[in-house]
Computed example of a mutant assay.
Amino acid sequence: MGSGEPAARRGRPRSEAVRGAVLSAAADLALEGGSAAATVDAIAKRAEVSRTTIYKWWPSAAAIVLEGLLDSVRDSITRPPGSTSVEAVTHHVSALNSILADPAVGPLLRNVIAASPSDPAIERALLDQWITPRRAAVAVTLREAVQSGELPADVAVEVAVDALVSPPYYRLMFGMAPLDEDAVIRLVQTVWQGCRAT
């Protein structure tokens, strides 16, 4: 997914129909042919819009794919109402695992991650809009468990977050089979018990 000209991003708001066509075209191309196939030229051709239209609103093809990903999973970090701390952590890890295991989403995210080192804007967006909010959701739950006395005060929250969210990414990036539901539950229980033992 190559970078391109800087986006102007001014004037009238984007047409939702155009936006939808562009996001859909980018997702289809990336799934069909990987990151090399999802170029701005190819996206423009498939969405039947001009390169100028694309560059007006997005800085690169990877930015388009990332926006589509964020749209599709934006509500997945919301804590279920009335859930216990363990249930909330399990929800967050299970939701992340399901997203990464989805054959229509996981490969797209893997392509965006691969493109991010050569595209600072995508690297920053990936961190700010994808990684950080998901880590924060788990961290907040763990800190609330500390405040309620469910976990000891000296729990290394960031380390626990790493232990909880890393396995789904590890499996995605190395092409391994995703965790199943039972494995997610065992992962959360193992980390939770480790936190309680500190």
Rank of each mutant, 00 (worst) to 15 (best):
E150I: 00
V105E: 13
D162L: 07
D119W: 01
S98W: 05
V165C: 04
S118F: 09
S94P: 14
V49A: 10
S35V: 12
G34H: 01
N111S: 15
R74F: 14
V140G: 05
I113N: 10
L151S: 04
R110D: 06
S50F: 06
S116G: 12
G82V: 09
A115L: 06
L69V: 12
T141N: 01
R110W: 01
V138R: 04
L109G: 03
G33P: 05
I122V: 15
A62W: 03
D71W: 13
L66V: 06
T53K: 07
E158H: 09
P59Q: 11
V73I: 14
G149V: 00
S83W: 01
W57Q: 03
A125F: 00
A160C: 04
P59S: 11
A37L: 04
D128S: 11
Q129T: 04
W130T: 02
L70F: 08
P152E: 08
I131M: 10
L126R: 00
I54L: 15
W58C: 06
V140Y: 08
L164N: 06
S50K: 09
A47H: 13
L66Q: 09
A114W: 11
S72L: 11
A139Q: 13
L127Y: 07
L69Y: 10
R143A: 00
G149T: 01
V165T: 10
V40F: 10
V138M: 08
L70K: 03
D75W: 07
E123C: 07
D102R: 01
W57Y: 13
A153L: 08
S85I: 01
A63I: 03
I64C: 04
R79L: 04
R74W: 13
A88I: 02
S35R: 15
H91Q: 04
P117F: 01
